[in-house]
Simulated assay, not measured.
Amino acid sequence: MNEIETIFQKSPSGKTWFRLQNSELPNRAMNFGDGLFETMVWENGQVRFFERHIQRLRGGMQILGLDSEAIDISELLEFLTVNYPNDRKRVRWNVYRAGSGKYTPETNDVFQILQLTEFTEAPIIKAKADVSDKVQLFPTLWSSFKTLNALPYILANQERKERRLDEIILLDYRGFVSEAGASNVFWEKDEVIYTPSLSCSCINGVSRQVILEHLDRNSMPYLEGEFKLSELQGASRVFVSNCSGVSYLGGFGSSKFSTIPLQFLKLIFD
């Protein structure tokens, strides 16, 4: 089953999800990137870390002025349970503004699209990484949310591919470490875990939230802040996380890191 065969839509007036044959064109997702998305894992009859995904999605909808009442959590879970009871799926949930118009929106109603594909875990090791030469991130009201405005990440990953890297690290406009091409970044030094704060324009990743909560709950030392690239280069271990799991960086430029998995991360994502 390919991605086209597993795309479903729910319109503002729709009572249920239906197989998408033709999308209304033009739409505000295409014309303006006027929307948000969540990428989630469906397994064992539930969405992993679902409450955190919902919380982030609703926060982004509030910023964009979208009608959060359009999000029916129980209906979505029922749909996945009925159609994919024993499957393990990667679920991309797009929520974008209905209506047409130009820059000024005509409505706060939303269209919703589900794109379901087979779930693939993140590779355990990404051997070669480096910093982006082309892309810097800037703070906005929506920096921490996953919006349909993804050009910085498209350009960064295009650069990663051209440079034959396994991962690329992005800095903010001040030169502080922000995140990876499609993941949050962490590193370990002297048994302390470090990660950029949201002030560095990184996405407030759900996996990031879960990792920090685990560290806090178990009194494990960590620092969330603004760090120059030299801090990461001097680490003993570097890892990146997103909904697909955790990957360890084998090297960054001339720096080499340990790729021995951290046990607490296996407990979180297994």
Rank of each mutant, 00 (worst) to 15 (best):
P261F: 06
S201A: 15
Y248H: 07
S255D: 11
Y103L: 14
E69T: 15
T81D: 09
T140L: 11
A127C: 05
K134N: 12
N94C: 07
L249A: 06
H53Q: 05
S230C: 09
S197G: 14
K161D: 11
R163L: 13
L141Y: 10
E75D: 11
M220K: 14
R88N: 13
V246P: 00
F252E: 03
N2I: 07
G59M: 03
R164K: 15
G65W: 12
N149T: 08
G251D: 01
S255G: 05
I63D: 02
G253P: 09
V206C: 12
L212A: 04
Q55A: 14
W42M: 05
L80G: 05
E43V: 15
E24V: 14
S68C: 09
E75W: 08
S100F: 14
V240G: 00
R217Y: 12
Q209H: 10
P139K: 15
C202H: 13
L267C: 00
S11I: 04
G251N: 12
G101E: 06
E51L: 06
S144F: 02
T195F: 02
R174E: 11
A129V: 07
F111Q: 04
I7T: 15
R56P: 03
L212D: 10
S183A: 13
R237E: 04
N31T: 12
Y173T: 06
S207P: 01
F79C: 03
L265Y: 09
F79A: 07
C202D: 06
N184W: 03
N2F: 10
Q62G: 11
F257T: 01
K228E: 07
D109F: 11
S74P: 00
Q263I: 06
L171F: 05
L76I: 05
D190S: 15
G175R: 01
Q115C: 10
Y153H: 10
L165G: 01
I203E: 00
I124Y: 08
G35F: 06
E188I: 14
Q209C: 04
V110M: 09
S23F: 08
Q46C: 11
Q115K: 13
V110I: 15
L212T: 03
N218Y: 12
I124M: 12
Q21D: 10
R52H: 10
L137W: 00
V82E: 14
K134L: 15
N204Y: 10
Q55K: 14
T104R: 12
I125N: 02
L114A: 03
F252N: 09
S199M: 11
S23N: 11
E78C: 02
D172F: 01
V41Y: 08
V110S: 04
M61V: 03
A182Y: 00
G101Q: 02
L20E: 02
R97L: 10
E5L: 14
R19E: 08
P123Y: 02
D216M: 04
D133Y: 09
E231L: 07
Y194D: 00
A70Y: 08
R48E: 08
E43C: 00
R160Q: 09
S11N: 12
Y222D: 09
R208Y: 02
N108I: 07
R58G: 00
L262Q: 11
S68M: 09
W93Y: 15
Y173G: 01
E106T: 14
G101H: 04
V206K: 11
K15L: 08
